[in-house]
Simulated assay, not measured.
Amino acid sequence: MTDDLNSVKTDERGYHHGALRPALLKAAESVLADRGVDGFSLRETARRAGVSPAAPAHHFGDTKGLLTALATEAFRKFGDALEAGDVGQDRTERIRSQGRAYVRFALAEPAKFDLMWRYALTDRDNSDYREASSRAFTILDRLVRGEDVTAHDDISAAPSIACWSIVHGFARLALDGVFGTGPGEAEQAAETLLPVVLEHLNV
């Protein structure tokens, strides 16, 4: 144990104070993008960051801790994408626009998108994670049910869950190649087919 801690201190000397954590997160993003969730490892993260194998555990506790940090940041960016996608002249147009933003995020960040919903691999009690994931749903919920959402039980949120289910399912199908695997085919489906699918929602 002492040797591990000493190696962490040695490996951290090349980083300014507070810079190792973001460096590890950046390396972890690279591993996740290349290997996917199931091929992710702390050791490879450490190797790409140029630190000892003990360094990631020293900062994040274990693999779940690091994946939770990655998922938290992914949810923050996802929420930003949903907010930016909320454009249009009326509520229906705004829902369609936000739905397209949802799918575009999934297509642009497939590994992160996969991780976000792999709840067994993340710590759902982590406060930062809960805040980021809740914000993302709230952005969608307020658009579907209205700005003055007060009830947060599943029954009251059913219209939002229905919209979420359709858009998330569409994103998953797009990632799996159902709408084509050629350049831009999935993106085109999100632009043209998804709005037609959303017309079947009674919201």
Rank of each mutant, 00 (worst) to 15 (best):
T2M: 12
I161M: 10
P56E: 00
G99F: 07
D141T: 05
L24S: 10
A162W: 03
Y129R: 01
D154F: 04
L82K: 05
V51D: 01
G14Q: 15
R35S: 14
S127C: 11
T138V: 14
E44M: 14
A28Q: 11
D38M: 08
L5D: 09
D153N: 15
G36D: 01
V144P: 00
A106C: 11
F78I: 05
N202T: 05
A174V: 08
V51Q: 02
A136R: 01
D141A: 06
E109H: 09
A174L: 10
A33R: 11
Q89S: 14
D148I: 01
R21H: 04
Y129I: 00
A120S: 07
H200I: 04
P56S: 02
S30I: 11
G36S: 00
A162C: 14
T2L: 10
L42G: 05
L175K: 12
A46R: 08
R35A: 11
A158W: 02
R94S: 03
R94V: 08
A158G: 05
A23L: 09
R76K: 10
G14A: 10
R104I: 11
F75N: 00
G184K: 03
N126R: 04
P53W: 06
L175V: 06
A189Q: 15
D153K: 14
R104N: 12
D38Q: 07
T72N: 10
V144I: 05
A101I: 07
G39I: 01
G39L: 00
S52C: 06
S165K: 05
D4E: 10
F113V: 07
R43K: 06
A174P: 05
A49V: 00
L66H: 04
V87Q: 15
A57S: 09
V149D: 08
V196E: 15
P56D: 00
E191H: 09
G146R: 04
Y102M: 07
A46S: 08
R91L: 08
M116L: 05
H58A: 04
G177W: 09
P110Q: 02
L198S: 06
L175E: 09
A23S: 14
K26E: 15
E185M: 14
A186G: 08
S30T: 15
E73W: 10
G61S: 00
D62M: 09
E73Q: 10
E131K: 11
T92W: 14
D4Y: 08
R21Q: 10
T72V: 11
A71H: 03
E12A: 12
R130F: 07
D62N: 12
L70G: 03
A55E: 01
L193E: 14
F40H: 13
L140R: 07
